[in-house]
Design a binder for these strands. Structure first.
Length: 555
RNA sequence: GCGCCUGUAGCUCAGGUGGAUAGAGCAACGGCCUUCUAAGCCGUGGGUCGGGGGUUCGAGUCCCUCCAGGCGCGCCA
């Protein structure tokens, strides 16, 4: 609809220029937007305002000329009028909007699917928490975001792989093994104090008990220490990772690929990446360590990649990992990180540039903190003491649908207050129920129609013009916006736009539902309204599916 | 000290890439169920868009500066 009008406008402008009434200046596709005020029509353009200066013309006079060449734009316009300093307001024929309804029903859950992403191979990496403990709420926000971005980009036509990078190679794995053994010793009666800088969460005690109970570990504490640590860390790492996968699954998140840092190192990927950097002159030795020349690409200082004790830094394997992603054929990398890692961004971008890849192909999404509340009061969370509210606990308490939706009601750049009591409440405080409820109401009416023996109409045979109410045309207009909204939300990596859209659509439907009956006595009108609400239900379900939230038949 | 994010109604937040008279939910107050689910709807009140400059026909939106809050600034991960 919008596209059609844009074309007609461009044609009208071209015609005016050809007639010599307007000087020929370059003009991009004319901008069309929906005015805030209904009196300003369905769509409006500021074309004449933007062109006035380069054409050295009065904007209103310019608009008059364009209007004359536009005519009725191929029959979709009821009227077009000049307004204010030079806006052109378009009033579409109601039937122009209603035409979307049969289309929605025909396309079903494919309605809104885009093609803009075709040819893009995107990797979305998210969560990637160290397998040293369970996921907490903050991870949940990143998980919801990554999962939904993956869904939205696929919906737009991109080829997407989601991946979890397992940091299973660094010092923290040995620390994990030792932590497990210390707890195991306590279980065997040791009274030595638990050392600092180890994982002291309660979950380690449970793991230690489970670990000791296995027959193959009966004499683990009698084994040489290094050997025992290796056994313990491998066992605990694998165990914790399985737990993380279970927690994610309960949250509705299934990640395509789990990629091991250790496997990367064993393949010699780091040395290969170093070779590439070295060839380009971005590696050098100093003070006994190996450095990457990050300052060549705008970072504030150069960064160590191999320490003077010979160990690789975390950064080194990250360079290799990102090179590996490109080598696997992905041309757009999206990394979702906690905002507390933002200081790390310039050096990784620098590394990508140093590997001769465009730094803008790497998108860092920095998710801000989650403040967990209960009835408005902060819930204490101390990672240091190893005590935090886990994602699993939150999902258990409030449900995956509610948690996901609420995590996606904010821009990721903004901190999020997550109140457990609100998330749990089945009331109007909780936006997810508001949207789901609208969907169940649609389904409820359809069930009622079936009960009353009213056959669902064939959309092709329905007299859509019977939908003459302002609310009905408004609903159709909102539905018609969904494809563009899904595209904009995906392109800008902004899932919250979908949540807001759904909330508004649900609101418009609730109002309509309360004010008007669908199953009226007059068959032609009832049929038209059934088509309308089916389309509403379809878009609600489609939008919720993008968010990974269920669209229940009944509540 | 430097860097990133944030500042919009009492509270929590939206404001598709500069557009016309700034929006929603919650909270407050008043109404609506013998009719398709009241987890809903209708109505009322509520604002120096943190402050100050600038850019232009036009700024919540772009630039500069100041203020306030959050988070970071290791040869840690």
């Amino acid at each position: 609809m919008k596209e059609l009008l844009q074309q007609r406008l461009a044609q009208a402008l071209a015609a005016a220029q050809a007639a010599g009434e307007v000087s020929a200046v370059d003009c991009p596709l004319p901008g069309l937007e929906r005015p805030r005020q209904a009196e300003h029509g369905d769509l409006a353009t500021n074309l004449a305002l933007t062109l006035a200066k380069p054409c050295r013309m009065n904007p209103r006079a310019l608009a008059e000329i364009i209007l004359r060449h536009l005519g009725d734009a191929g029959g979709i316009l009821q009227k077009a009028e000049l307004a204010g300093p030079g806006f052109i307001n378009f009033f579409l024929k109601p039937t122009a909007w209603l035409a979307i309804l049969p289309e929605i029903l025909a396309q079903g859950d494919q309605f809104g699917r885009g093609t803009w992403g075709q040819g893009q191979k995107v990797m979305v990496e998210y969560v990637s928490a160290n397998p040293t403990g369970p996921l907490h709420v903050g991870h949940g926000r990143g998980a919801a975001l990554g999962d939904v971005l993956g869904r939205m980009l696929r919906f737009g036509g991109c080829e997407v792989l989601t991946e979890y990078y397992i940091n299973d190679a660094g010092n923290q794995m040995a620390t994990l093994g030792r932590s497990l053994l210390y707890r195991a010793r306590e279980l065997r009666g040791s009274t030595e104090p638990f050392p600092d800088n180890h994982y002291r969460g309660e979950y380690m005690k449970d793991l230690a008990a489970e670990f000791l109970a296995l027959p193959e570990h009966v004499d683990i504490l009698q084994q040489p220490w290094d050997q025992a640590v290796a056994t313990a860390s491998a066992w605990a790492g694998a165990k914790i990772l399985r737990g993380i996968q279970d927690d994610l699954a309960a949250f509705g998140v299934v990640i395509d690929s789990y990629y091991s840092e250790r496997s990367l190192l064993e393949r010699g990927a780091v040395e290969a990446a170093f070779d590439q950097l070295r060839q380009r002159g971005f590696l050098y030795e100093a003070e006994g360590a190996l450095w990457f020349k990050a300052t060549a690409f705008g970072d504030e200082k150069d960064r160590v990649v191999r320490r003077s004790n010979g160990e690789l830094t975390y950064f080194a394997s990250d360079i290799a990992y990102h090179l590996d992603k490109f080598q696997r054929g992905y041309n757009r990398l999206i990394d979702i990180w906690g905002a507390d890692h933002h200081g790390y961004v310039p050096r990784l971008k620098a590394a990508v540039a140093g590997l001769d890849r465009p730094a803008e192909d790497l998108n860092m999404v920095l998710v801000q903190m989650v403040n967990l509340l209960r009835n408005g009061e902060p819930v204490a969370m101390s990672t240091r003491a190893g005590e935090f509210v886990t994602l699993a606990e939150v999902v258990e308490e409030v449900g995956a649908d509610s948690a996901r939706f609420l995590f996606l009601t904010r821009r990721y750049e903004a901190q999020l207050d997550f109140d457990l009591e609100v998330a749990k409440s089945k009331s109007m405080d909780n936006p997810v129920f508001y949207v789901q409820y609208a969907h169940t109401r649609v389904k409820s009416v359809l069930r009622k129609a079936e009960q009353e023996g009213v056959a669902l109409p064939d959309p092709a045979g329905v007299e859509l013009e019977r939908l003459a109410l302002e609310e009905e045309v408004d609903l159709a207009r909102r539905l018609a916006e969904f494809p563009a909204l899904a595209e904009a939300a995906a392109r800008n990596l902004e899932p919250h736009r979908v949540t807001y859209y759904l909330h508004e659509l649900a609101g418009a439907f609730h109002s309509y539902y309360n004010a008007h009956r669908v199953l009226v006595d007059e068959p032609a009108l009832a049929a038209a309204r059934l088509v309308l609400i089916q389309a509403v239900g379809q878009v609600l379900a489609g939008g919720l599916a993008l968010l990974g939230v269920s669209a229940p038949e009944a509540m």
